[in-house]
Amino acid sequence: MPAAEVDREVRIAIARSIKARGRIPTIAAVASDLGKDVASVDASFARMIEGHVFVPRKDSHEIYAYDPFCVGPTDFFVSSAGRVWFGICAWDALGIPAALGEAGIIETHCADCNESLVVEVDADGGTDVQTWTVMQVGVRPRDFWKDIYFT
């Protein structure tokens, strides 16, 4: 099977695991789900890392963040679709309800004063505009992948 087709199957299996189980799968779990050998799924994960499809754990091909979903724990808790999720950053946390097509509640803290912050997002992406909450992007988008762990 061509690599592009394998990668598509693997990507669909990852998405299915996230939606159905609320869990980012390991290489072994995807191999088991698809009835494939671990080496071929590992090679697919490596290609997806190269293509910036997800953020790997350091020194590994395993997923750290299949953005917007992170294995966590992080400072960004998201309640959506009856589960608790983790976002690697504010942008991703806000994107979790959107990826699930559901409403969600993002809980974190102000990076300046540490006071708790709660943002409610509806299923259509609307939010409580009465809040003064802002998001700061500290790296230019063209530089995001230069050091994704810093970003």
């Binding site: 806000l94 997002v121 939010t127 505009v129 802002v134 992007v137």
Partner: peptide
């Protein structure tokens, strides 16, 4: 290294 500030509704729309 850089800085852009988005209102929460802009950030949510972007996400």
């Amino acid at each position: 290294p850089a800085s852009a500030i988005l209102k929460i509704e802009e950030a949510t729309a972007l996400a």
